[in-house]
């Protein structure tokens, strides 16, 4: 009786490991298919039998992707100039050389994700600290508002957001994508969770020593919530990079596209050239996956902390 029970348990264990490994392969497969597809020649792409490994590695898909469209490498506009220029187009005081649009898209995406990340980390760590440690009046109401907003479907507000952005003259700029990302209250909530653990005595001691509020924040609070800031940074970076709907609504001209939006547009234009699309998809996905793999320790921690008392 005892031994059969044990063999049954062992059998279950072996079986579950086998299933897990199979599942792991299935979950990796789409990514594998993107990367190998990007290097496959057309004969492999359109083969009627599955071609598991490229018969030869070719760069032609990437060449096609780069030749598809072109755009200036960068354009620096005078802030709010679109409202005064008469044409509705902003006034550029510096325009870079013309390059394949994919380069520009990559630059746009990195700029967007990094700026959103930095702004979110600064504002959220300050606000999270205030909510956790400052007993100011109205704190309860503010916190309830933040929780309610977090439960709100984010995409529902995007269409009114579009009206607001066009009224502010920020339509079709990367700021229209960055600012709503920074405003999303998850970061504040996460940083409040991390700031709760700062001992009040340390803050009290700093105050007795005559340390200013800003100094206390910079020299005591920030070092203590560093893991939280790390988690939030990586979280914001990935979310901003992949927030396709927001980018789709706000960015309307090819030069301002992000990498995901650019790939989506190519898909709509040439939905049959799979090699080209896989080249684009790998450029959209690989940078973010590398960032994720480097910082995944922080990431796991952040997801877990964000859910505590969620």
């Amino acid at each position: 009786m005892k031994t059969s029970d044990q063999t049954l348990r062992r059998l279950y264990k072996v079986l579950s490991v086998l299933i897990l490994i199979l599942l792991a392969f299935l979950f990796i497969f789409p990514l594998y298919w993107i990367v190998t597809g990007a290097f496959k020649p057309a004969t492999d792409i359109y083969a009627m039998k599955p071609v598991w490994w490229p018969s030869e590695f070719t760069g032609e898909n990437f060449v096609k992707l780069l030749n598809k469209r072109s755009a200036p490498l960068f354009q620096l506009a005078i802030p709010f100039s679109a409202q005064f220029s008469g044409t509705g187009e902003p006034v550029y005081f510096l325009t870079g050389p013309t390059v394949p649009a994919a380069f520009r898209w990559l630059i746009n995406t990195v700029f967007m994700a990094v700026t959103a990340m930095i702004l979110t980390c600064i504002t959220a760590s300050m606000a999270g600290y205030a909510l956790a440690k400052k007993r100011f009046r109205g704190r309860g109401i503010l916190f309830s508002l933040i929780i309610c907003a977090m439960a709100l479907p984010k995409q529902v507000i995007l269409i009114p957001l579009l009206k607001e952005m066009s009224a502010l003259g920020m339509m079709n700029t990367l700021w229209a994508v960055i600012f709503p990302t920074v405003g999303w209250p998850f970061g504040v909530f996460l940083m409040k969770q991390f700031s709760e653990s700062i001992p009040g005595e340390i803050l009290e001691a700093a105050r007795v020593d005559g340390s200013s509020e800003i100094r206390t924040f910079a020299t005591i609070v920030v070092p203590m919530v560093k893991p939280g800031i790390g988690a939030l940074a990586i979280f914001t970076f990935i979310n901003s990079w992949n927030d396709y709907f927001l980018q789709l609504i706000m960015l309307t001209s090819g030069a301002n596209y992000t990498m995901p939006l650019g790939v989506a547009t190519l898909q709509a234009e040439t939905s049959v050239d799979m090699g080209l699309l896989m080249a684009g998809a790998s450029l959209a996905a690989l940078p973010i996956i590398i960032v994720f793999l480097i910082f995944q320790k922080y990431f796991t921690q952040g997801i877990t902390m964000g859910a505590v008392k969620g």
Partner: peptide, 11 residues
Amino acid sequence: VVTGSVAVTVV
């Protein structure tokens, strides 16, 4: 999740 909805969808 990290790969992003566009790249995942396209593949």
